[in-house]
C-alpha cells in the first residue's frame, strides 16, 4: 500500500513540476515583451553559457570528429567507398551529433550552474529581496538566462559541427590519406541546406529546453520537498535538473527527427 501511495505522489509531483515549467515559459514570454529592456544581463549570460563553454565544445567537437573519421574510415574501407567519408562525417555531425552533444555539454557545464545559482538565491531569500524591491524576479533572473540559452546553444552547435568536420578531416585526410578533394567536395555535394536547418532547429529547441528545465528546477526549489533541506536540497535539484534535461534532449531529438 505504501509503495503505491509513494509512487502516486511522486507521479503527481512530477506532473506538477512539468506544469510549472511550462507556465514559467509562458510567464517569461510575457515578461520579455514588457519594458524595460535591458541588454547587459543577457550579454552576461551569453558570456557564461556560451563563451565560457567554447573551450569544452571545441575539445569535444574535435574528439567526436576524429572518432567518427576513424570509425567511418574503417567501415567504408571494407566497401571501397572511402570517398564518401566527408559526407558521412558531415551529415552525422550536422543532423545528430552536433546538436545533441553540444546540448549535453551545456547541460553539464552551464545548466547545473544555472540551477544551483537560482536554487541558492531562492533559499537565501535573494529572490524575496528582489520581489520586495519591486523588481520582478522572473524577468530579472530567469528571462536573461532563457534568452541567452536560445542564442548560445545554436552558436555553440555551429562551432561544434565545424570543428568536428575538421577533426574528421584530420583523421581521414592527414592520417589515412583520403584525398582532400573527395573529403571536402563529397561533403559539399552531399550536404544540403535542409541538413543544416534540421541541426539548427534542433539546437534552438535544445537550448530552450535545457535552460528552461534547469531554471525551473532551481527557481522553484521552495515548492518541492528539497526546498527545506538547504544546501543539500540544492544538490538534489541540481542532480535532477541535469538528469531531466539530458533525457529531455535525447527524447526530443528523436521526436524532432521523427516529425521533420
Amino acid at each position: 500500500m505504501k509503495t503505491v501511495e509513494s509512487l502516486g505522489s511522486s507521479l503527481l509531483a512530477s506532473l506538477e513540476q512539468t506544469g510549472r515549467t511550462f507556465l514559467l515559459l509562458l510567464i517569461i514570454a510575457y515578461r520579455i515583451v514588457q519594458p524595460p529592456y535591458n541588454l547587459y544581463p543577457i550579454v552576461r549570460q551569453i558570456y557564461f553559457i556560451g563563451a565560457r563553454s567554447l573551450g569544452v565544445i571545441v575539445i569535444s567537437g574535435v574528439t567526436i570528429g576524429m572518432v567518427l573519421g576513424l570509425q567511418f574510415y574503417n567501415t567504408l574501407e571494407r566497401f571501397g567507398s572511402v570517398d564518401i567519408l566527408g559526407s558521412a562525417v558531415a551529415l552525422s555531425v550536422l543532423r545528430e551529433l552536433g546538436p545533441v552533444m553540444t546540448a549535453l555539454m551545456v547541460v553539464g557545464r552551464a545548466g547545473s550552474a544555472i540551477c544551483a545559482e537560482l536554487g541558492i538565491m531562492r533559499i537565501s531569500e535573494q529572490v524575496d529581496a528582489l520581489e520586495c524591491m519591486a523588481i520582478n524576479p522572473d524577468k530579472f533572473l530567469v528571462a536573461p538566462k532563457l534568452l541567452a540559452g536560445i542564442i548560445s546553444v545554436p552558436l555553440l552547435t555551429c562551432v561544434f559541427s565545424v570543428v568536428a568536420i575538421f577533426g574528421g578531416y584530420f583523421v581521414g585526410v592527414v592520417l589515412f590519406g583520403v584525398s582532400e578533394g573527395s573529403y571536402l567536395n563529397g561533403m559539399i555535394d552531399a550536404v544540403v541546406w535542409s541538413d543544416v536547418r534540421l541541426g539548427l532547429v534542433k539546437s534552438l529547441i535544445f537550448g530552450l529546453l535545457v535552460t528552461l528545465i534547469c531554471c525551473s528546477k532551481g527557481f522553484y526549489i521552495h515548492l518541492t520537498k528539497s526546498g527545506s533541506l538547504g544546501a543539500e536540497g540544492v544538490s538534489y535539484v541540481t542532480t535532477d535538473a541535469v538528469v531531466i534535461s539530458s533525457i529531455a534532449v535525447l527524447f526530443s531529438d528523436f521526436l524532432i527527427g521523427a516529425i521533420l
Binding site: 531569500e125 535573494q126 524575496d128 529581496a129 520586495c132 524591491m133 519591486a134
Partner: peptide, 12 residues
C-alpha cells in the same frame, strides 16, 4: 513596494 525597504535576516 517602491516605498518600502527590507533588510533580510541573512542579508540576501
Amino acid at each position: 513596494r517602491k516605498q518600502m525597504g527590507v533588510a533580510f535576516q541573512g542579508g540576501a
